[in-house]
Structures are given as structure tokens and as C-alpha cells.
């Protein structure tokens, strides 16, 4: 009886998971179609849409731009966020709880509102539509994730190890590089990789900050889909899925995706 009920739940779960994965199950095959319209099941087999990628206007520059933006965002957010995270985890100071809440607050507001606020602000500063503007925006929304990763990483941290190193005569910098950092390295690297992913995927904030010269890949796809539904987009999407899969698997390997719990609350 128990076994039967269990498996029914399993079957239902299977179908629901199929629903959530469905978009990927159709995108990849549809990119190999030989027709000129996205269809499923795809008719014929061809690689013409992949060779067509090279001719898609703006694609190459958007890919390069998005990768650059995501990499610089990830590096800067990691440095800034790790410093702040360490500080909150290790030191007791006045107003610590408030500062912690404030540092995480960009995640509590809808991305749409942050995007508009930054557009207004950057227009005053002359940064609207620039790389710097997008970079600052992406850093803002990824720092909270890095801080949270570091805080979870530090939750199981044993202060005695640092004390032991200090007693043995190690200098603070050396303690950090030889004791503290290796222990929180998985959390920090996950923060970096996750920041890359958030930046690389972002649509809602970038929407207000891109320009014709500085166009990110998701925005290029977004604009393209609204005009026509070509299998070309299936091919682009397949490539993006593959690019996104690398960081996802890295996080799963070194940190565990399940520990992301509650971490991703504003990726739209």
C-alpha cells in the first residue's frame, strides 16, 4: 500500500518536472529543423541554423559583450561581496543587523523598479546605455548573492583555527590566505559563478540600460523573438543553454545546488 502511494506521487512529480523542463526539451530539437519556421516535432534534419548563427546581425558582438560584462561583474562582486560578508560573519559591531539587511535589500525590490531608477539616475550621470552603467547595475544585484554565499560558508566556520594560527605567530594576511580563505573557497567560488550566471541571464534590469552599441545577448534574443519566431533563435538558445550549463554544473559540483535555497529570489 505504502509503495503504491509512493510511486503515484513519483509519477505525478515526473510529469510536473516534465512541464518545467518542457521548454528545453523542445528548443534543442527544434534548432535542427530544415524548415523556416519553428515547429515541433521538427521536420527534416539540418545544421543550417547553426551556420546561420554567424550571419545573424549583432549576435557575435552581443555574445562577447555579455561574456565581458558577466566576467567583470562576477570578479568585482566577488571581491566586494566577500569582504562585506567576512566582515558581517566575523566581527561584532553596532548596527550589524541593519547593515546586513540593507546590503541584501536590492534583492527585495522588483528588478523592474531598480531598472527604472537606474535609468533615471544614469541619464543624469551620462552613463545610460554604457558598459559602466550596466556593470554597476549588475554588481549591485549580484553583491547580495555573494554575501549570502559567504555567510552560509562561514556558518560552519571554526574560529579556533584562526586563533591557532595567530598563536603560532601567523600575521593576519597570512591567516586569511592560508586558513580563512581555503575554508570558505567553495562558497566564494560559487558566489562568483552564480554572479556570472545572474549577470549573463539578466533581462529586466538590462532592458533599461542597454543601447544599440551595448546590447546584451538576452536582450538581443528578447527583441528578436518579438519580431519573428525563427529556428535561428532555437540555435542561439541552445548555445546559451550550453553556456549556462557550465556554471550550473560547477556550482552543483563544488557547493550543491540545493544549498542555493532561498538564494535566487530576483533573477527576473
Amino acid at each position: 500500500m505504502m509503495k503504491l502511494r509512493f510511486s503515484w506521487l513519483g509519477v505525478i512529480t515526473f510529469f510536473i518536472l516534465m512541464f518545467t523542463i518542457a521548454p528545453f526539451l523542445v528548443i534543442v530539437p527544434s534548432s535542427f529543423t530544415s524548415e523556416n519556421f519553428v515547429s515541433f516535432p521538427p521536420e527534416g534534419l539540418s545544421l543550417k541554423w547553426y551556420t546561420g548563427l554567424l550571419d545573424m546581425p549583432g549576435l557575435t558582438s552581443a555574445v562577447i559583450f555579455s561574456l565581458q560584462l558577466a566576467i567583470v561583474t562576477a570578479i568585482l562582486s566577488t571581491v566586494i561581496g566577500t569582504l562585506a560578508g567576512l566582515c558581517i560573519a566575523k566581527y561584532n559591531f553596532k548596527g550589524k543587523q541593519t547593515i546586513n539587511t540593507l546590503l541584501l535589500s536590492p534583492l527585495a525590490l522588483p528588478a523592474l523598479i531598480i531598472g527604472i531608477a537606474l535609468l533615471v539616475y544614469f541619464t543624469y550621470l551620462g552613463l545610460a546605455g554604457s558598459f559602466t552603467g550596466l556593470l554597476l547595475a549588475h554588481i549591485l544585484i549580484t553583491i547580495p548573492y555573494v554575501i549570502r554565499f559567504v555567510l552560509t560558508g562561514m556558518a560552519t566556520f571554526d574560529d579556533n583555527l584562526e586563533k591557532a594560527a595567530a598563536i603560532m605567530g601567523a600575521k593576519p594576511i597570512r591567516i586569511f590566505w592560508d586558513v580563512t580563505f581555503p575554508l570558505i573557497r567553495p562558497a566564494v567560488i560559487s558566489g562568483t559563478v552564480f554572479s556570472f550566471l545572474i549577470s549573463f541571464d539578466n533581462v529586466t534590469i538590462s532592458l533599461f540600460l542597454v543601447s544599440a552599441e551595448n546590447m546584451t545577448l538576452p536582450l538581443l534574443i528578447f527583441n528578436y523573438i518579438q519580431q519573428n519566431l525563427s529556428p535561428l533563435i532555437s540555435a542561439v538558445s541552445t548555445v546559451v543553454i550550453l553556456i549556462s550549463l557550465i556554471p550550473i554544473l560547477i556550482i552543483e559540483k563544488i557547493y550543491g545546488l540545493d544549498r542555493l535555497f532561498g538564494l535566487n529570489s530576483n533573477s527576473h
Partner: peptide
């Protein structure tokens, strides 16, 4: 963890 634009495109198909 994959862009919402791409998931939406999948639903379009």
C-alpha cells in the same frame, strides 16, 4: 538558472 527569455521561447514553440 537559464534565462527567462529562453524558457519563454520554448513555450512559444
Amino acid at each position: 538558472l537559464v534565462s527567462v527569455v529562453i524558457r519563454n521561447f520554448g513555450w512559444t514553440i
